[in-house]
Amino acid sequence: MSTYHEQPLHPLIKWWGEFDFELHQAYSWRFGSLYFRVIRKEKEWRIEYHRPQNQHETQQDWQKLDPDELFPAPINFERYMFNQTHHTFYLMPRMADRSVVIKPVQPIYIPTGQRSTLFISTPLWLSGFVQSQREALFDVPIIRPKDTWFGQDKMQGQLCYATLVDGSTDLNLLTPRPFRAVTPIHFYNDTNQQMRLERINVPVHSLPLFYSEETNRLWTSEIKVFQDSIDRPSRIRIESRTPPMAGQVSFVQPARTDSGGFITNMFETLF
């Protein structure tokens, strides 16, 4: 069994990866306010975790803990049964399992004929994978977002997550955070009126996830929003290539759902 060495609060983004478990070995972490432990038994994987009632999205530090660290109460337990467990375990980040609605503190306007890019970040999920299993054993938010409704009225719309706005037109002003992924959204306003961005429904479950060691960030594919007429909905496209500003990236996770490259309207109102 490997010897544990206490580690300080980690300044780096990358907290995930492949872990090697001997029988009855445990790994423990603190991801923000979420305490999490994975234990390998001969015929089962066990997880133990504590999530406080109130979590703060600004708490973005993480730490590897002593395997036997005492967690705060209450502690949740889950068991996953196998004929025989394998020593390899993958702890991975994923995008949220439904759309995330962001709302800028102040409305954003894009004048007629202008092109603009908004960099936003959205919260990540924590997933566990083992050899020979394509589906995750568990899939939980690191920091659980609040629920919100997005739509024209209470009958037509969809249940989404709401998150604190962390967006900027300047990537350098967006702080790298371990539990959030950056999505560039490009706007093309070819109408004769300026666009007004108030609530944006970002379909993160349709976005693949990448990691850039060069920028020390997690990234998704780019989204492009084309507005040609005030009488028609926007044309919204998910780019297949990775964002050029991310530099060299490595693939982390596929999109949860296949949008075919095109998605439905992201806005309640635009003009």
Rank of each mutant, 00 (worst) to 15 (best):
F129Y: 15
M92E: 12
T183K: 05
Y161M: 05
F119S: 05
L137Q: 13
T112F: 03
P123W: 00
F77R: 10
L173T: 10
M195C: 08
P145E: 02
P145G: 01
K154F: 14
V140L: 15
W149L: 04
E69Y: 10
F150A: 10
K154H: 14
N76K: 15
L91D: 07
L171P: 08
V105D: 09
M155L: 15
F138S: 08
E78I: 01
Q63D: 00
H87D: 14
C160H: 06
E135Y: 11
N172T: 14
P123D: 00
Q63E: 04
G128M: 06
Q194L: 15
I102N: 07
P111G: 05
F119E: 04
T175A: 07
L171F: 11
F89T: 06
G113E: 00
L159N: 13
R180Y: 11
N76A: 14
D66Q: 06
P104W: 06
F179Q: 04
Q158L: 11
T169N: 15
V130M: 10
P111Q: 06
T183M: 05
Q131D: 13
I102P: 08
E135C: 12
Q194I: 08
M195I: 13
P107H: 00
F187H: 05
P141W: 01
D139M: 10
D68C: 03
V130W: 12
W149I: 04
T191N: 08
M95L: 14
S132D: 15
P123Y: 00
F119Y: 15
A181I: 12
F187G: 02
R134S: 12
I110E: 07
G167N: 11
Y188M: 04
Y80F: 15
P74R: 01
G157W: 01
I143E: 09
I120M: 04
R180L: 08
G128I: 06
D68G: 03
Y80M: 11
P176T: 05
V130K: 13
P72H: 00
P184E: 01
Q63V: 04
F119V: 02
L118Q: 07
K154P: 07
R180F: 09
F89A: 09
G128D: 07
I185R: 02
S168R: 04
Q84W: 10
Q63Y: 01
P74M: 02
I108E: 01
S121E: 12
Y188D: 02
C160W: 09
M81W: 12
P93T: 09
A162D: 13
T148Q: 11
R134A: 15
D68E: 15
D68W: 03
I75E: 03
V182R: 07
E135P: 08
Q131A: 14
D153G: 11
A96K: 02
G113K: 00
A181L: 11
C160Y: 11
R115F: 01
T112S: 11
I185V: 10
F119M: 08
R79A: 09
Y80V: 10
T122E: 05
M81K: 13
V165S: 14
T183Y: 03
H86T: 13
V140Y: 13
I108K: 01
Y80L: 10
G113S: 00
